[in-house]
Simulated assay, not measured.
Amino acid sequence: MDVLADVLSATKIGGTVTARVHAARPWGIEFPHLASAVFHHITQGCCWLRRPGAEPLPLTAGDLVLLPAGSGHAMASDPTGPTVRFEDVTQAQRSGPGAPIDFPGPGPDTRIVCGGYRFDTHASHPLLTLPPVLLLRADPSARRHDLTETLRMLAVELADPAPGSQTITDRLVDVLFVHILRQWAALRDAPDHGTTWWAALRDPEVAAAISLIHEEPGRTWTVDTLAREVGVSRATLSRRFTRLVGEPPLAYLTRWRLEIAARRLRETSDSVTRIANTVGYTSEFAFSRAFTRHRGTPPTRYRATHRQ
């Protein structure tokens, strides 16, 4: 079981490129808070990432920054100074397909590819618990050929759109998101590399246990059976799983089962009993109690409120 692919599918992450920016100093764009992860790739020049309550972050050509929570921020030519709202810029320019957002000025040029990843705002998987800012610095010596090639193809497609370009760019952005996560997870020495779920995927036995849970979420798992399957003692698995994932194996199992159940409540007409049985609950009462404790509302009310 490819756990990352399973989580991406369940949390419904999808990509959509939003803009190319061509700007000459001085300039500044204010991006609103969005229910998506936002990325900026600097293809030429340099600029600053400005966030409320944080020190401005300098960026240069080749750098890629991801804001997983889509928090409000600004991209600008200087660490201080005025900005204009992204919505105002796009409405004022009314650019055609493929045309960049232009900021003419007397200073040096900066070019940026900006994009966002839509995700299910109801999802609560640890995958979505990433640092506020995930920065991949340009590094010619780094082993990031797949990431670099994906960014190159994305830039080419955006610069010269043709029939089908929207489909291609959406797929490339999806692929880009995976490469960003892979590259960031590989940076073991990064100061903000503290997200335990990613460390868990590098531990063979813990990763195998997570994979089993994702492969058969409805199975009657115990810590003993998981430990036997992955070839370690019950105590070893419990200790390492809890340390790396941040919660015990059965707590993670419950979280994942209810994540699946919540999605099915939103997206299908299956009965609550059937959904409960699918994710390993033999009693609708037990399922309702667990779901209410996890989501703060009973399954039937959750469905009525969040049905898509």
Score class of each variant (00 low, 15 high):
residue 2 D to K: 07
residue 11 T to Q: 13
residue 17 V to P: 01
residue 21 V to C: 11
residue 21 V to Q: 09
residue 27 W to Y: 14
residue 31 F to N: 09
residue 40 H to N: 12
residue 41 H to K: 04
residue 41 H to G: 05
residue 48 W to V: 01
residue 50 R to K: 08
residue 50 R to D: 01
residue 52 P to V: 12
residue 53 G to L: 12
residue 65 V to E: 10
residue 67 L to T: 07
residue 73 H to P: 07
residue 75 M to V: 15
residue 81 G to T: 12
residue 85 R to N: 04
residue 87 E to T: 10
residue 88 D to F: 05
residue 90 T to R: 15
residue 92 A to E: 13
residue 95 S to R: 15
residue 97 P to Y: 09
residue 97 P to I: 01
residue 98 G to I: 03
residue 100 P to Q: 10
residue 101 I to Q: 14
residue 102 D to C: 10
residue 103 F to I: 11
residue 112 I to C: 12
residue 130 L to A: 10
residue 135 L to P: 08
residue 136 L to P: 03
residue 136 L to C: 05
residue 138 A to K: 02
residue 139 D to H: 08
residue 139 D to I: 04
residue 140 P to M: 06
residue 146 D to E: 09
residue 147 L to C: 03
residue 149 E to C: 03
residue 152 R to S: 04
residue 154 L to P: 01
residue 156 V to T: 12
residue 159 A to Y: 03
residue 168 I to K: 11
residue 171 R to S: 08
residue 171 R to E: 05
residue 174 D to L: 02
residue 179 H to C: 02
residue 179 H to T: 03
residue 181 L to C: 04
residue 184 W to T: 01
residue 190 A to D: 15
residue 201 L to E: 12
residue 202 R to G: 08
residue 204 P to W: 04
residue 210 I to P: 00
residue 210 I to F: 01
residue 211 S to P: 07
residue 215 E to H: 13
residue 216 E to I: 00
residue 216 E to T: 00
residue 217 P to M: 05
residue 226 L to S: 05
residue 227 A to F: 08
residue 227 A to P: 09
residue 229 E to I: 00
residue 229 E to Q: 12
residue 232 V to M: 10
residue 233 S to W: 07
residue 239 R to G: 02
residue 241 F to L: 09
residue 242 T to L: 04
residue 249 P to R: 09
residue 251 A to L: 02
residue 255 R to I: 00
residue 256 W to L: 10
residue 256 W to D: 06
residue 256 W to Q: 10
residue 258 L to H: 10
residue 259 E to G: 11
residue 261 A to H: 08
residue 265 L to A: 01
residue 268 T to Q: 03
residue 269 S to H: 07
residue 276 A to G: 09
residue 277 N to A: 15
residue 278 T to Q: 14
residue 289 R to T: 15
residue 290 A to R: 10
residue 291 F to Y: 08
residue 291 F to Q: 09
residue 294 H to E: 14
residue 296 G to N: 05
residue 298 P to G: 09
residue 300 T to W: 00
residue 305 T to A: 10
residue 307 R to M: 02
residue 307 R to V: 04
residue 307 R to L: 08
